[in-house]
Design a protein around this nucleic acid. Structure first.
Lengths: 341, 341
DNA sequence: TTGTATGCGTTATCAC
DNA sequence: GTGATAACGCATACAA
């Protein structure tokens, strides 16, 4: 192993005690200018870098945060397009902050398993926790999260009581806006094709859909609401079903862009055309929405911003705990109008 | 702060010394069965968990690896679909291994900046390093990587001399296979639309393209080789240019799926049809390839497998250094035949 | 302003 | 088989 320089080496070279070097390194004021200069010189000469492990042992801080990335099992492509922007947002903020980011990827099943969170936290020392998930975080998991007495923030999800510090975006409002847009186009019969409906996002989108129809005085036909998964194929087969229902919906609200693309395929096969005969809207504004023919009207969620805001809040919790109040933020989404409506 | 139990607490409760507790916790054999049982009991009662920081300080190991994720600047969607499967592969292997994964996301510009790697490594203590990148890792960066005397592995990239431990996949061979497939379909005039050509992958694909044509005795027209970026729009505009060239290529090899989709849009607009008039192939087998109309013939790279293999190799380097030889692996890709050819 | 000394929670090296 | 005890590298309370 290569010999690495320590405080002691610097102290010897500079002709001072380790305490003084430590003070200089940590920027304490009570150091004579002349001494400081000498120490800094030695630090540079020896290329000294504090051992973060040793420092952590005595300070109790680690300057590290842990990120749980909770995923579907098995992974589907949409999983990734959801998470990466968030991680990007987190990472962007951390850049230049000299904070460590540790990550754990796991399935939602694992994550909700009693003891899982505990076990992982036992094995690492971190100052704060971030959780990216699309599912409700059950109470027993929250209590494991809380046990450590370190700040945690849920990103894109919440606990059953909505009490945890969290950053989310407004799926219901976005869906309402979509319905409003479609009504403005003259549509009165609506169908919905959902994705994995154990996920919070889908539940909220469905809720928004139902409330929007209700508040518009439009009828809500249960048989025009289909539930599948997030895949293109699911959208395709659900749309096939919808095409054989009566009354026929002319506006199809889809759980995500992939479903919408599948739905459009089914419509095309039936000889009809989008948007002439049917309007189709997606969700997420993934690359798929831009590439589909016709290009999809969809919803852009502020994923990256959400990540940045969450980690910023966590950072604040760790650096200024006295003035911190746990955030509960719901961000608005943006509707992207394209050719499918 | 919450009081956390230490070795000493356990020792007191079990009526033994801390040394004995440590032995039990670390599974040393030289402990009487009776004592072991008593200690294990105390551990359970107090819910003791070793402090990994303190342990690291004395052992010199951290059981953590650092993952550099080197990205385009600004980020494009293809970046994510490339990285996430690799990270997934890494994370899958680490699951249950009680190893920490730390990540740093940065642009290639930052990464290649002298001192950047050094600086980051100074601030963290890790046992090994993984680098995910699509660019050649310059010599001065490699030497910073090496300076720590800890194992590192490049994933999806290499240094100028090809000397670093690495896992890559064979872009050139895959492109040759594409050309062969297209020749089998009767095509004799080939065009290529490239993406960011500062990236290794694109360079290798271009090289494979050129070698394939040459070895088939087919003419290589420089003006049928267009270079843009990875975006759909770039594919679109490059294809427009190709359509005005003569001779006209009938087979278009694209740098990735997005480019291919853009190219197909341009072809469709010109009144021609894929695959009747032109064959178009992509690269990466992203969701876009499956969603496009017609569905794209493309190449699937073993991204997730590559991630797993790399971290597995690193793990081996750390646990069995004596029997370890630095890997230099190039994995084969798989051609996915669809409707665009 | 500076130095001495103590402790952070472990593991490892001795003795016994 | 077990128990003292010395590191590990650093920050800090206390003395000077």
């Amino acid at each position: 192993m290569v010999k690495v320089t320590t405080l002691k080496d610097v102290a010897k070279l500079a002709g001072v005690s380790v305490a003084t070097v430590s003070r200089v390194v940590n920027g304490h004021k009570a150091v004579a200018d002349e001494t400081r200069a000498r120490v800094e010189d030695a630090v540079r000469k020896l290329n000294y870098n504090p051992n973060s492990i040793a420092r952590s042992l005595v300070t109790g801080r680690t300057d590290a945060i842990l990120l749980y990335i909770v995923q579907e099992d098995p992974i589907v492509p949409t999983t990734w397009s959801y998470e990466l922007p968030i991680i990007q947002g987190i990472s962007d903020f951390l850049r230049g902050k000299s904070w460590e980011l540790q990550i754990i990827m796991c399935s939602n099943r694992e994550f909700q398993e009693p003891g899982f969170v505990n076990d992982k936290l036992d094995r690492r020392n971190v100052d704060g926790i971030l959780v990216i998930s699309a599912w409700t975080v059950e109470r027993h998991v929250v209590s494991e999260l809380k046990k450590r007495q370190i700040p945690y923030i849920l990103v894109g999800c919440n606990d059953p009581d909505g009490k945890s510090p969290s950053f989310e975006y407004d799926n219901a409002a976005a869906t309402k806006a979509l319905v409003k847009h479609l009504r403005g186009l003259g549509h009165t019969t609506f169908g919905l094709i959902g994705g994995a409906n154990d996920q919070l996002h889908m539940q909220d989108r469905l809720r928004g859909f139902e409330e929007a129809l209700e508040s518009s005085g439009l009828p809500l036909w249960n048989r025009l609401i289909k539930q599948g998964n997030w895949a293109v194929e699911s959208g395709y087969s659900c749309m096939k079903e919808l095409l054989s229902e009566s009354p026929q919906p002319t506006a199809i609200v889809c759980g995500n862009d992939h479903i919408a693309v599948g739905a459009m395929q089914a419509i095309r096969e039936s000889g009809a055309e989008v948007p002439r005969d049917y309007a189709v809207v997606g969700f997420d504004d993934t690359i798929v929405a831009q590439v589909a023919t016709p290009k999809l009207t969809t919803v852009r969620a502020p994923l990256q911003e959400m990540g940045t805001m969450a980690v910023k809040a966590l950072h604040r919790a760790l650096t200024k705990p006295e003035s911190w109040t746990p955030p509960k933020v719901v961000l608005p989404c943006e509707i992207v109008l394209r050719e499918s409506t």
